[in-house]
Design a protein around this nucleic acid. Sequence first.
DNA 1: GCAAGCTTTGAATCGCATT
DNA 2: AAATGCGATTCAAAGCTTG
Lengths: 370, 370
Amino acid sequence: MGVIERIRHNVAAVELPLDRILKGDCVEHMRGLPDKSVDMIFADPPYNLQLGGDLFRPDGSQVDAVDDDWDKFDTFAAYDRFTRDWLTEARRILKDNGTLWVIGSYHNIFRVGTAVQDAGYWILNDIIWRKSNPMPNFKGTRFTNAHETLIWASKGEKARYTFNYRAMKTLNDELQMRSDWEFPICGGQERLKKGGTKVHPTQKPEALLYRILLACTKPGDVVLDPFFGTGTTGAVAKRLGRRWIGIDREGLYIEAAQERIAAALPLDESAVVTMQSPRAQPKVAFGLLIENGLLKPGTVLTDARRRWRATVRVDGSLEAGTESGSIHKLGAALQGAPSCNGWTFWHYEDANGLKPIDALRQTYLLATQP
Amino acid sequence: MGVIERIRHNVAAVELPLDRILKGDCVEHMRGLPDKSVDMIFADPPYNLQLGGDLFRPDGSQVDAVDDDWDKFDTFAAYDRFTRDWLTEARRILKDNGTLWVIGSYHNIFRVGTAVQDAGYWILNDIIWRKSNPMPNFKGTRFTNAHETLIWASKGEKARYTFNYRAMKTLNDELQMRSDWEFPICGGQERLKKGGTKVHPTQKPEALLYRILLACTKPGDVVLDPFFGTGTTGAVAKRLGRRWIGIDREGLYIEAAQERIAAALPLDESAVVTMQSPRAQPKVAFGLLIENGLLKPGTVLTDARRRWRATVRVDGSLEAGTESGSIHKLGAALQGAPSCNGWTFWHYEDANGLKPIDALRQTYLLATQP
DNA sequence: GCAAGCTTTGAATCGCATT
DNA sequence: AAATGCGATTCAAAGCTTG
């Protein structure tokens, strides 16, 4: 079945509000849609962040928190009820060979994943969106929260879902597409703004939806997004020749989404190129060599002429007498220089003499890069 | 408290089977351990029912591998009970400021995460272990499952957990450590083998435990691993000068673990030292700089961009027009910020330009420290 | 006009010791 | 137990201003 035939077939078979945004509660609107009628459901539900007081950056400016009412739930139990409700309707609407995608963070994704399994879906993969430019942890109290998690599930273990394996492999330079994807957060020209401020606090990047729709739908397939927001799903679906249905409560988001999707054009060659993520730069931190046993804490390093010496500590810092710091900082401090490339400055001794620690970095890269 | 003192203190305070492996069911053995007695629990529980074999109900009976829908529910329910049971005991044993780490895959991590939250733990981060050399998806039916997920949680929202921020930042070449970590899977010399075959199917890499223990424990802290397997947690704990307790049912794993840990060498105490936060440095009152002549009353200070200026008074307060106060208070007031670090906010002019007054503090510390 | 530097910002569960 | 004071804390990308 070709593209056009498929579209005609889908339209004829059921009465769906295709390529439209429905305003209101997502569960109520889903109740109005027929059984087994959509090919994919992409959902970006509220994360239930449970944020505390105000957060200030080191420079004194305030972080613009997600404090919208739609993200507030009284208890985990209330959030679980909400999740079960929309997942149940979604399952009824989904075709037997359709798939579900949900995105979330550690605040909600475990509850969502449990509910997905309890509702009878079969998880196919969890996917990590690694943010190339996440917001830092300003207070230095935790690890930088640098990713979000997506769940991809079919309606059951035996379902024959769509997975465009070749397309994914091609997109990834002839290597199987992995479960960790790197994209920047949504910003720049792509980020919808009104009067200088963002329209939606959590707009998703089109690159993310592009990969999902390309991987798991065929041209003409119908994608339902019950938390449509500013319509990333609709915009990408239109560009990729897929049909879409959006549901959202907020008139402001709906207006912005309609305008955006109207302006979206079917994809051309040049756009494909820009949508692809740049290949991740292999970057090796000095600490990795220690964690991986290429260099032992307690090892003594020297510069090439053995004028300075320092001892490696467990955290990858170096110690020289009363001074200590990273390989770069300590090298600079000892030389009285403004900066120093620790990789080429510091050397270790092996059977064949003195070698720069950069040699160990090369060894590590060779051992770990495909 | 130094390393040795800390170890003595911990040993004296409670009667723990330190640096030993307990053979048998983890929940039963945990019941024998005292309340609030360990600093960290690292758990690598069985991942899933469908993979079969090593999942047991709390009563010790084995869960059958089944694929019927209602049985699936039965299976999930059994897994949830099992998870709640060990998490509950773990919580009782954990010190109020201790933390929990759990590792899992999409088969079980959502259920575990939900149980962690329901038990009252407070999730601090979820961490992604990105495998640099994952097993490919042979059939080409899904994305390559190239990661596992870890959950890091405290006992509650207000708990004051250990996080060695500076050590992590140093380990990562002076950038904040992110929530996505890349390591190779466990192989090569590190992988325990007997007669050419691997001893344990899911042996974790030491690099993973190294980062966890370095980030979230102090030397001498006690780590409990209720699913000890071949003892990666124990081997790394010994290396890093931490104490450990392991629990496992399988005699084969216990033997291998004991041999392995006996062969592990503790690092020299000086190498275990990590970079400290400035908070751990001795405090210097601003007034000390004036009393010691490093800064003269009447000196004009400005911020880095010279937007505000203030005059140093004899008592170490600053004056700016009608406002005055400590270096911190005045900095905060002028910016309209809730707080301000006066040491880095205020600058003085010397021959080479504008410098933060923190430079003077460093000069003072260097001159007065032994 | 272009380069260099400065400013802003992004789904965030973001301090701690003393009084 | 609650309030107060000290002072620790950010990365990458985009947009804008200055030279």
